[in-house]
Amino acid sequence: MKRLQERAQNRPTGESPIIRMAVRVMIPFIQLFGLYVIVHGHYSPGGGFQGGVILGASFILMALAFDLKTTTDYFSEKANAILGNAGALIFTGLGALTAILGGLWLDYSALDRIIPLGPIEWRSMGIFLVEVGVGLAVMSIMVSLYWDLASGGDMDEGL
């Protein structure tokens, strides 16, 4: 028992290789599933918020199994901020655009005046566009919340 404990504590590679390998296998599928949930949001269970949380959780899982630096190598802080702001801009921009074009706030059928697809088709497409914006914003906020909480604000070490 003592010997096993010492061996687990003093292992040179840090986190266990089993966990690393399993996480390495799982992360692409988690991200694919997150995209699936976002894209299918308007006619099956799911949507922008849920898909964004799944996408963010994949990066949090990476940060838990490896360390914070590996995550920021794959997905830098700058890209995270740009994606989150782009998501918020897509949502509010689409709402403002529909209001400017003569409809109500987020009344997607007003977008028919730019690209004529028919108001019913545009209602479906508009929900999809807004869901993409919500998903990007939620993913970015989840990841940056985890980064800041785990490292106490100074993005160096973390858990």
Binding site: S16, I18, I19, A22, V23, V25, M26, F29
Partner: peptide, 11 residues
């Protein structure tokens, strides 16, 4: 997915 994730979590 369960077959990969559950033993890893236990480990």
């Amino acid at each position: 997915f369960v077959f990969i994730a559950s033993p890893t979590a236990t480990h």
